[in-house]
């Protein structure tokens, strides 16, 4: 859009108040979906997208600089790779423990937790980290280009 908007988003009081009230529950709900995915609907992918949506909402209302102060771009880039590495790392660890790639049966911890349960938990965490930071990164780069014009 070429013409300047008369008011910035953060000057609109309704948007500011509503988004301030909504962002913490959105991020909390993302964590709930992430860690409760074994028991109810949801999982890493949905949780990552919801978490990124919370950050994007913050960025849209309060500006790109404010959200990049909370979640710096360099961390976004690192975490995008960390999630994939965590997923692949679970596979490599299961090879080293004598199973096949991504066979969680060999992951055993002292205690009642099933190896499959631990493997699924870690793998979903990797998916969540990658999806959340990848979506945030895509938003950062699009929005960064728009504000530079």
């Amino acid at each position: 859009m070429t013409q300047k908007t008369p008011m910035r988003m953060q000057d609109k009081i309704i948007l500011r108040v509503v988004s301030k009230a909504l962002i913490p529950p959105i991020l909390l709900f993302a964590l709930y979906v992430q860690f409760h995915g074994d028991f109810g609907p949801g999982g890493g992918f949905q949780a990552g997208v919801i978490f990124a949506a919370g950050l994007v909402l913050f960025g849209v209302i309060f500006g790109l600089d404010a959200v990049q102060e909370v979640f710096p771009p360099i961390w976004v880039e690192i975490l995008t790779a960390v999630g994939v590495l965590l997923y692949g790392g679970v596979g490599v660890v299961s090879i080293m423990l004598g199973g096949e790639f991504l066979n969680y049966d060999v992951l055993h911890l002292p205690g009642p937790m099933h190896g499959q349960h631990l493997g699924i938990f870690l793998v979903e965490l990797g998916v969540g980290i990658t999806v959340a930071s990848a979506m945030t990164a895509i938003f950062y780069f699009f929005a960064g280009r728009a504000t530079k014009r």
Binding site: D38, G43, G83, Y104, Q116, H117, V123, V131, M135
Partner: peptide, 29 residues
């Protein structure tokens, strides 16, 4: 002891598929 069968299928039985999907998201970013 995981009630959500969808999660079990996606993350364990089809762990390779989900690994590929995660890599696709990474590649898109």
């Amino acid at each position: 002891h995981i009630p959500n069968v969808v999660t079990v299928v996606l993350a364990s039985y089809r762990g390779f598929d989900t690994f590929g999907e995660t890599t696709v998201v990474f590649a898109a970013a």
